[in-house]
Design a protein around this nucleic acid. Structure first.
Lengths: 152, 152
DNA sequence: TGACGATTGATGCGAATGCATCTATATTCA
DNA sequence: TGAATATAGATGCATTCGCATCAATCGTCA
């Protein structure tokens, strides 16, 4: 009996839509950034977190918690960001193993320019397609799919 | 004036949820497959299309249309699938450039075993979290985000 | 027919990813 | 205290991806 706990047709369809639409949207947003000569989305995610963190910066492991990047990906992404002068690594941690990552002025500027393009993509791809109520419905329903499930 | 056409808070939140949740779900589904010693999700997508296509098979370019893989990714993915004996490339096309890809018995069997795991993931991650009505709502709303937007 | 542009699919190369492991420092606890 | 364990972050290696390009064939049209 191999057919145990198989998903309902509604679940399969919702899953399929989620997979396909998310890929399409990412592709489009990525394309818009590239067309503007800007870095990829991954960079934005990290720069966004660091910009919100302010002057205090963040430890790399905090970035792995807030984003969904693997530890080694954060490590390498930060190396690239540093090489581009968008972040700086501060050795001054009270933990000898760690470091604090702080966004630079250039990093903030890059993030701002990325947002001009990224934000427009979001507005066009999502904001223009559904009403505010519908968007809130989507957010609420997707929120219940989060792992671990959280309120809000 | 740089602030033109920026997305509403609802749009931003819906986008963020979509990005985050889809990544989490993919990660979980991928992990489940790996834990079972099965190939990655990408393989499933292609095997699924080929299984539905039946004995007639599909041309590689048809696969790039139906999936969201780039042409060169399909080319290489098919090479790996062929190396594993899951598909076969039939030179017998009436188009001298092309080939027809057909799933093998082993390919069908692999797909079946993948579905046992993948389907369970979908049931747990999505089917168990929302009602059938809610799932249909999600499908309908996400459907309006497709590119190009389509009815349904 | 025959030259030209379009289409199909593959591939060389550099960059990014996944996995496992490594070094270094911190923490815990006998 | 000191040995064992845990945590932070980097890295070697193999695989995969992205990009550009290529070879081969097809279709079109003068």
């Amino acid at each position: 009996m191999t057919e145990k706990a198989m998903p309902s047709p509604e679940a399969i369809k919702a899953w399929a839509r989620l997979m396909r639409v998310s890929r399409q949207l990412i592709e489009r947003a990525e394309e818009a950034l590239k067309d503007s000569g800007l870095p990829p989305l991954d960079w934005y995610d990290v720069l966004h977190e660091l910009a919100e963190a302010g002057e205090g910066g963040l430890r790399p492991f905090q970035l792995t918690e807030r984003t969904l990047f693997a530890q080694y990906n954060i490590s390498r992404l930060l190396a690239r960001l540093e090489a581009d002068g968008l972040v700086e690594k501060l050795k001054v941690a009270d933990d000898g193993r760690g470091q604090t990552i702080r966004i630079t002025a250039k990093g903030r500027e890059t993030r701002r320019r990325m947002w001009a393009v990224y934000g427009r993509s979001i507005a066009e791809l999502v904001g223009a397609k559904l009403s505010a109520d519908e968007l809130s419905t989507v957010s609420a329903l997707l929120g219940r799919l989060r792992l671990p499930p959280a309120p809000d």
